[in-house]
Amino acid sequence: MSDVLDAYPQLLRGTWTTVQLTVYGAALALVPALVFGLAGTSRHTAVRALNRVYVEFFRGTATLVLMYWLFYALPLVGFRFTPVAAAVLSLGLNVGAYGAEVVRGAVNAVPRAQYEAAVALNFTPWQRMLRVTLPQAVALMLPPFGNLLIELMKGTALVSLITIGDLTFNAQRIRAATGETAATFLVILVVYFAIAQMLQLAVRYAERRVDRMLGRRPDRRAAAAASGAGAVKA
């Protein structure tokens, strides 16, 4: 065990790479999630079809196979990606497909009455989406986004197979050097778990912020002010 812990510089480097891949992957995933998710709520069949094609393709293909394609196969026809670019792209596009479904579901779940109130105030279609529907949909997106973020983080372990020195990759090397199989995998199990907990905390924080914006969980100050206002008069 102590041999494994002595290799902490390697573990730290690996952890840092894993965290970076998670952040880049999540940032990239957010773009297709929003674009194709909103496309899925369109009135136009052709635009909705874009959502279906993207979601079905990237949800239905294994991330690792996608990674192999980007890293090993596409260079054969002249498209070259660095390992990190191939990894971030395949992780982001895959998780983005799940995210698009989350966005579509959340936008559709905002009560239609909100859309109607926005029409009655003569907001343009873009304003309706940006000012009314989307801010309310975000509250519904956050919990499933938290799940996806953790899935993405765990999915980064695949990048060790295309030569990126992430946590899993470094663990393999430490294990080879020390022969401590159980200890090595125990340590990285704990590290992955710890990262997941941090991500979860961040998502929870965002959820609380959004709930407060929507008045679902009024902060103490506002609640006190409201009840201090005395009897509610119609």
Partner: peptide
């Protein structure tokens, strides 16, 4: 004016009243 009010829950009272006059 609607039966169920349909105020925007993502805005306080002031912004419910100012958002459309400003944006529209």
């Amino acid at each position: 004016v609607f039966q169920q009010f349909n105020l925007f829950p993502n805005m306080n009272v002031l912004r419910n009243l100012t958002e459309a006059p400003v944006r529209v």
